[in-house]
């Protein structure tokens, strides 16, 4: 959704980063013409857990040199996100409010309502967007004032459940299962010879 703030609400710890990077890739693929050549637009990723991994980002099809990564402390997330969005430089600003397994963030969403409103004002009427990645289970007094909230649960290695919980045009939906083939492909591989070593270690 361009010109709005989208919340990607993840239950548990699954696929938040992968889906965010897919969004970045989609924005980067819309190249901008510049005097006969085309350049990929800049996107930004706010990574307070300092864990975004370059090989994984490249494998997601993203041009590293056009993705600005900022690693602020938790208390500066809102300030940094606002600076990025209000600058007007970045087509998509991904704000990770969740962290990852073993490095989850202690980030209160209660104080972010005002920040989200300012983010909405910054991108309103533009082609730019902000994607907030949040944890479904983090307590919040009120829902964040986003334009769209998508709830995602990875229910199995090969399956996702997706629900549009809020949409400013009213297009909400019930949870829908979606096949996730990438994880399944790995499981369906023939075990390597070295698996025996793993069994010994285990």
């Amino acid at each position: 959704m361009r010109g709005g703030v989208v919340e990607l609400s993840i239950a548990g710890s699954g696929l938040g980063t992968t889906l965010s990077l897919a969004a970045v890739r989609a924005f980067q693929e819309r190249k901008e013409a510049s005097f006969g050549t085309s350049v990929k637009p800049w996107c930004a990723f706010v990574d307070p857990s300092s864990s975004l991994y370059a090989p994984g980002v490249v494998a997601s099809g993203i041009a590293l040199e056009r993705l600005l990564v900022v690693r602020p402390p938790v208390e500066a997330i809102g300030r940094v996100a606002l600076k990025l969005a209000e600058s007007g430089v970045f087509e998509l600003v991904v704000v990770d409010l969740m962290g990852t397994l073993g490095r989850s963030l202690d980030c209160s969403l209660g104080r972010l309502g005002r920040v989200v409103r300012r983010l909405s004002m910054a991108v309103d009427g533009t082609n730019k967007s902000v994607l907030l990645v949040t944890d479904t289970h983090v307590e919040r007094a009120l829902p964040l004032p986003v334009a769209q909230r998508i709830e995602v649960v990875r229910t199995a290695a090969d399956r996702l459940s997706v629900r549009v919980a809020k949409d400013r045009r009213g297009r909400i939906s019930a949870p829908r299962p979606i096949a996730w083939t990438r994880g399944l492909a790995a499981l369906e591989e023939e075990p390597r010879e070295e698996t025996a070593d793993v069994r010994k270690l285990a």
């Binding site: 991994y53 090989p55 397994l101």
Partner: peptide, 13 residues
């Protein structure tokens, strides 16, 4: 070799 499977997107510091 990791790239053959789902890419690792996070590395713990």
């Amino acid at each position: 070799p990791f790239d053959e499977r789902a890419p690792l997107t996070r590395l713990l510091p």
